[in-house]
Amino acid sequence: MLRIEVVDYSSPTHAAALLSMLEHYAQDPMGGGDPLPQATRENLVAEMAKRPHVWSLLAWSEAGEPVGLVNCVEGFSTFAASPVCNIHDIAVRDGFRGQGVAQQLLAAVAEKAKARGCCKLTLEVLSGNEPAKLAYRKFGFKPYELDASMGKAEFWQASL
Rank of each mutant, 00 (worst) to 15 (best):
Ser61Leu: 02
Val54Asn: 10
His88Val: 00
Gly95Thr: 06
Ala59Glu: 08
Leu106Phe: 15
Val73Leu: 14
Lys50Arg: 15
Pro52Asn: 10
Glu47Trp: 05
Asp94Ile: 07
Ala102Phe: 06
Ile90Lys: 01
Cys72Ile: 10
Trp60Met: 04
Asn86Cys: 11
Arg41Glu: 08
Pro83Trp: 00
Leu69Arg: 07
Ala59Cys: 08
Pro66Val: 08
Cys72Arg: 00
Leu58Cys: 01
Asn43Lys: 14
Ala39Asn: 13
Ala107His: 11
Arg41Trp: 06
Ala108Tyr: 01
Cys85Asn: 07
Gly98Met: 09
Ser77Gln: 07
His88Thr: 01
Val84Ala: 09
Ala91Ser: 13
Phe76Gly: 10
Met48Trp: 14
Ala107Thr: 14
Ala110Met: 05
Leu44Ile: 07
Arg97Asp: 08
Leu57Pro: 02
Glu74Thr: 11
Gly100Lys: 07
Leu69Ile: 04
Ile87Leu: 13
Leu69Asn: 09
Asn43Trp: 02
Lys50His: 05
Glu62Ala: 11
Ser61Gly: 08
Ala81Met: 14
Ser61Ile: 02
Leu105Gln: 11
Gln38His: 13
Asn43Leu: 11
Trp60Val: 04
Val45Ala: 01
Glu74Lys: 04
Val84Lys: 08
Arg93Ala: 15
Thr78Asp: 11
Asp89Glu: 14
Arg41Ala: 09
Gly75Ser: 13
Gln38Ala: 15
Val70Glu: 04
Trp55Gln: 03
Ala49Lys: 05
Val45Asp: 03
Ala102Pro: 07
Pro35Gln: 12
His53Ile: 00
Leu58Ser: 00
Thr78His: 08
Ala46Asp: 13
Ala110Phe: 04
Val109Thr: 09
Gln38Tyr: 06
Lys112Glu: 15
Gln99Val: 01
Glu65Met: 06
His53Tyr: 10
Glu47Tyr: 02
Thr40Asn: 08
Arg93Glu: 13
Arg51Gly: 00
Phe96Glu: 11
Leu69Gln: 08
Arg97Gln: 15
Ala110His: 11
Trp60Glu: 03
His53Ser: 06
Arg41Leu: 15
Arg97Ser: 10
Gly100Ala: 08
Cys85Ile: 04
Gln104Pro: 03
Asn43Arg: 15
Val109Ala: 05
Arg93Trp: 02
Gly75Ala: 05
Leu44Gly: 07
Thr40Trp: 13
Leu69Val: 06
Ala108Pro: 02
Ser82Phe: 00
Glu65Asn: 05
Thr40Tyr: 14
His53Lys: 06
Gly100Phe: 06
Val70Thr: 15
Leu105Gly: 14
Asn71Lys: 01
Ile87Gly: 04
Ala80Asn: 10
Ala80Arg: 12
Val45Gly: 04
Val70Cys: 14
Arg93Val: 06
Asn71Trp: 00
Leu58Val: 00
Pro37Met: 09
Ile90Thr: 02
Cys85His: 03
Glu47Ile: 03
Ala39Asp: 15
Phe79Asp: 09
Thr40Gln: 14
Ala46Tyr: 05
Gly64Tyr: 06
Glu42Phe: 01
Pro35His: 09
Pro83Ser: 09
Pro66Arg: 05
Val92Tyr: 02
Leu105Tyr: 09
Thr40Met: 15
Gly100Arg: 06
Asp94Arg: 12
Ser77Lys: 08
Gly68Asp: 12
Arg41Gly: 07
His88Glu: 12
Ala107Arg: 15
Gln99Ile: 00
Pro35Ser: 15
Thr40Lys: 14
Val92Ser: 05
Asp94Val: 12
Pro83His: 05
Ala63Leu: 09
